[in-house]
């Protein structure tokens, strides 16, 4: 258990943006993971994808680590941001942009605007 926690802690800090998801960013295996990965991909973000389906310890462990019962889970600079609903809401409201900017994470602002235009 503590080994898993250590492993998760290392993963969370392994890059500025880390997405725990089912499947990979190029081949998501769940609609909710797919939606978040799709947004990050479209916004041209560089991020680490962790496929929880490939490691049962991490699949359970990340839920305890974050005190969050579902996958996907997004971390920015080691901080838990939220799951699919929260990322969707923050993308549409522009909060995700501000949060990324505050953390010095580069992304394509035009692409983010396009997502908002398409969902206005």
């Amino acid at each position: 258990m503590s080994d898993t926690n250590t492993k998760i802690e290392e993963l969370v800090k392994s890059s500025d943006v880390v997405l725990f998801m089912k499947g990979t960013k190029s081949m998501p295996q769940c609609g909710f993971s797919s939606r978040v990965a799709g947004v990050l991909n479209f916004m041209g973000l560089e991020y680490t994808d962790v496929n929880v389906l490939a490691d049962e310890d991490i699949r359970q462990g990340i839920k305890d680590f974050s005190d969050w019962p579902t996958i996907p889970q997004l971390y920015v600079k080691g901080e838990f941001v939220g799951g699919c609903d929260i990322i969707t809401e923050m993308t549409l409201s522009g909060e995700l942009d501000s949060m990324l900017e505050e953390n010095g994470v580069t992304f394509n602002k035009e692409a983010a605007d396009k997502i908002r235009e398409a969902n206005a």
């Binding site: 005190d67 969050w68 019962p69 838990f80 939220g82 799951g83 609903d85 929260i86 809401e89 923050m90």
Partner: peptide, 10 residues
């Protein structure tokens, strides 16, 4: 916060 609201519902 958003996270706190979701956690409260969970």
């Amino acid at each position: 916060s958003r996270i706190a609201r979701h956690r409260a519902v969970h």
